[in-house]
Design a protein around this nucleic acid. Sequence first.
DNA 1: TTTACTGCAAACCGTTTGCAGTTCC
DNA 2: GGAACTGCAAACGGTTTGCAGTAAA
Lengths: 121, 121
Amino acid sequence: MTPQRRAVAAVLRGENVHLSAEVVLSRARQELPELSMATVYNTLNELVAMGEILEIANGSGPKRYDPNVLIAHHHLVCTSCGSLQDVAIPASNPRLNADELHGYLITGTEIVFQGLCPRCR
Amino acid sequence: MTPQRRAVAAVLRGENVHLSAEVVLSRARQELPELSMATVYNTLNELVAMGEILEIANGSGPKRYDPNVLIAHHHLVCTSCGSLQDVAIPASNPRLNADELHGYLITGTEIVFQGLCPRCR
DNA sequence: TTTACTGCAAACCGTTTGCAGTTCC
DNA sequence: GGAACTGCAAACGGTTTGCAGTAAA
């Protein structure tokens, strides 16, 4: 646990936090100005590998990192400004029936609700 | 309609087709060897803008292009090899209730089922 | 002294863009 | 001649990597 990793981890804390590497860097630099981007990426990737944070791959644009791993949830993304909102798993959780599985073994289901956020609509 | 565009469009035809720009190029070059990557991307982006094909943004790795725009569907992706399968919209289509909308106006819902394909499991 | 980690800079991959050279009306 | 399009090569943005230097065990 180096100061760098602590600074990165400290930024990724809380609910409804979805930060890009860039933003993680600038925020963590408030604590540790000499922090480098390489170290941010190294740390983020380790945190993802350890299961401490989630990686949210946005279509184009940078990946976002989400520290909320304890409560399973989906995302609501604004197609205009890119802002993200956590949403609870809906009551009607989608399932595939046998003939739609095409022989796959399902390991996860991810729902992305697209829409316009209050500011953009 | 130039030969280049025709060649690209011809490759993106059928069901369960999810090709990267790279693959589109190499296949279209069998018809038109002098085709360039720039033109492939130009054409793909126009087709997407025209609503003729869908862009599937994979986490890391190249985008995939899907000509199946007529039948609404979701995707089943192999987390090991990246292969993709179209799946029908499940009977229980997820919906958010008012308090989960957070003021967003929903415009679309995308489900990605992750799993292991028959070859990888 | 070995090991792990950092920061820098350069490389990387997928995609986009500037531009000069077609082609077609 | 003007508009639309091509191919090349260079630029781009986000991410990763090689490497020399530093700190910690």
